[in-house]
Nucleic acid binder design. Sequence first.
RNA 1: GCAACAGCCGUCC
Length: 244
Amino acid sequence: RSYSILIHGLIKAGCARETYELFYAMKEQGCVLDTLAYNTVIDGFCKSGKVNKAYQLLEEMKGKGHPPTVVTYGSVIDGLAKIDRLDEAYMLFEEAKSKGIELNVVIYSSLIDGFGKVGRIDEAYLIMEEMMQKDLTPNVYTWNCLLDALVKAEEINEALVCFQSMKDLKCPPNTITYSILINGLCRARKFSKAFVFWQEMQKQGLSPNVVTYTTMISGLAKVGNISEASGLFERFKASGGIPD
RNA sequence: GCAACAGCCGUCC
């Protein structure tokens, strides 16, 4: 247990190399590694591009009296999805389902994000439908993933329809939601509509952050609207922002 | 206790 805490601490401190060394050293000495230790190392592997190693550890857990949990599956599914290995991510998702693991909104959101980012919008929608059929409520992360997928596919109108659904289903948008939509509107050159959302978010009590500003500023600058872009930039600095 | 979301820039090709 205290080893798990140490492993967790090392990863958080950014000492990935040391963490794995400790992890393997402990294994060799016959230490019993608990689920948290496995999950921490597996997530570390996923985030450092070593998804195959992560997958190997997930397999190892099955034989060690610490079966992979929903978090273990979540890390590896997300790791695979982030490097576009969606079919494998989906297979793991099916495997977890077949083992009776209660899949949650995090797993569904990861998959929606992954399929969406590679333009497999139909599949992203199907996963969204499946989760709702299972009475899981999409949260703001889930909706943001779907909206971003539509924006990247240049389907801003569809994104706006989903934005309405999200509000109808009582999921409050956040600053990230608005940043995604503003990005989509800028990509579609609908700047005046982007400004409408810019205002709307503030009416909802949400402040644009550095990403929201950058989205709007670079959107304007890309089409040569330098004066509006620099005006916003000045406003950003005046509001106490630190530019990236 | 551990897993999921947005912009620009940089590195590589």
